[in-house]
Design a protein around this nucleic acid. Structure first.
Lengths: 197, 197
DNA sequence: TATTCGACTTACCATTTGGTAAGCGATAAC
DNA sequence: GTTATCGCTTACCAAATGGTAAGTCGAATA
């Protein structure tokens, strides 16, 4: 099984991911994707059959990336790994918000369409990791999940708000917000050292 | 100045808000809005000039609703009012996620288009209220804002994830998640009674 | 009664959309 | 040398989109 990153198919998925992330599924036309690649629309249709087919591949790639990111995170103890994961996620969501945008778009679109849940493996893996920490080993699945989801929510919501916040308060003020956001995240993560009440 | 809720213009804005919330700006066609109203597409164009014009009115109405919701919240002390506001927001985001979806769609679209910031008055009012609490009276604007935005983020992210979570884990399991989410929110809000470290 | 005006509608249009059908040129297999 | 396959392209299409222009029709106004 060959899966080179520079194969045409992969190049198309990569570019499509960018455009879908920026504009969302409906606003992203096949032409707007292929224009940046120097090929015609039909190149995409040749490989993926339809726009929906392309989107499925894009979401699969996103799912794989998310899962890989949590599997490859550095650290010895579960606490270290979980902490490192969230810090890494926060930084990437701010510097390269593509995957976050893709994911939030998918959440919003979920009501109309989706039948598959590309982020389930990711969430399950994250839950399994958290469950190994002392803080959450005894907790209920619901409590654990909500703690995780709260972190994800505040990180991703802040990330997709970037342009809006810069526009409202200025790029300078946003730098302070980023620092405060980071500090707050680390404060929440330091709870991992504690045992439950 | 007359502004009855059942004027044609208002009916159009209300319905357009629903459709824009569900599908987002690009996927929502004028026809998909007017079909549910029993009028033709041109009725909208007559009142609002263009689709973009309609969307502007929709966002203005959203902005007004958000601002009103914080001004009308019940409670005597700032702590009570802020607490009540977030609890009310969380409940409404879950039972009637329309405004939340509208807002998140707007955040995602912000990079391409928007030049106006409909939620700035809302955020400013929320910040002003929080600043009156003992917990935050001495804090920096950035720290205060991030605390608010973290709450907003987790509430709204959880709300737009509703269908996805139900699809992934089942409607029954989601009820437990909702309880845990609520409990977690109240725990965070109880921090308001404390003074800063 | 005549006129204006608001709230639409019918008719029409250019553009863009996703999708189908068929073909083409280079490389690889036989 | 012929054939098949891969990775596309050109040509074409029906449907939907936002938008313009002009007209209709009832109620308010003069």
């Amino acid at each position: 099984m060959e899966n080179p990153v520079d194969s045409p198919k992969m190049r198309y998925i990569t570019m499509a991911s960018k455009v879908f992330a920026e504009k969302g599924y409906h606003a992203a036309s096949l032409t707007s994707i292929t224009d940046k690649l120097g090929v015609t629309r039909q190149a995409l249709l040749h490989f993926f059959g339809s726009k929906a087919g392309l989107y499925t591949h894009v979401m699969k790639a996103l799912s794989d990336r998310l899962l890989t990111s949590i599997q490859n995170v550095e650290g010895v103890t579960p606490e270290e790994r979980l902490r490192a994961f969230f810090l890494q996620l926060s930084e990437e969501a701010l510097t390269c918000p593509q995957d976050t945008q893709l994911l939030v778009h998918a959440l919003l679109d979920a009501q109309e369409t989706t039948e598959i849940w590309p982020l389930k493996p990711f969430l399950d893996a994250l839950g399994a990791l958290a469950h190994q920490t002392k803080r959450w080993s005894e907790a209920s699945d619901a409590d654990l999940f909500c703690w995780i989801y709260q972190l994800l929510g505040s990180i991703q919501h802040f990330a997709i708000s970037q342009s809006t916040l810069k526009g409202m308060y200025g790029a300078g003020a946003f730098e302070f917000l980023k620092e405060a956001h980071q500090a707050q995240l680390e404060a929440t993560l330091s709870d991992l050292e504690k045992t439950p009440d």
